[in-house]
């Protein structure tokens, strides 16, 4: 699939929803819980994880794939692991920048 910045995706098996922050350098297969994502809004289903230890995605966290450069922002938390070509995405660390405006 060709993934562009700003595109929103929804999991078909959980309540996970994301928006693409940075596009991957090449075409990749983006999945959640092993299933392809939908580009139309899907109803929330299943629980939402409370912490990173529960697995799944957390609202407001950014997830990245170092190999392809893909970065997504989670707009609705949910169960299931986000992956690119089978590689699980990793959660990006907090910014250490001070507020400036």
């Amino acid at each position: 699939m060709s993934i562009k910045p700003g595109t929103r995706y929804w999991s078909t098996t959980s309540s996970t929803a994301i928006v693409v922050v940075r596009a991957p350098s090449a075409e990749v297969a983006l999945t959640c819980d092993g299933a392809p994502l939908a580009d139309t809004e899907q109803p929330a289903q299943g629980g939402t994880p409370k912490s990173e230890a529960d697995g799944g995605t957390l609202l407001g966290k950014r997830y990245t794939d170092a190999d392809s450069g893909l970065e997504v922002l989670c707009t609705r938390g949910g169960e299931g692991v986000l992956a690119v070509d089978g590689r699980p995405l990793t959660v990006a660390g907090a910014r250490a920048l001070p507020a400036s405006d």
Binding site: G6, V21, L59, G60, K61, R62, E71, L73, A94, R95, L97, A99, S100
Partner: peptide, 12 residues
């Protein structure tokens, strides 16, 4: 949105 994504954490 790039500016926000690269400088601010959600609900921080």
């Amino acid at each position: 949105t790039s500016y926000v994504m690269s400088t601010v954490d959600f609900l921080s």
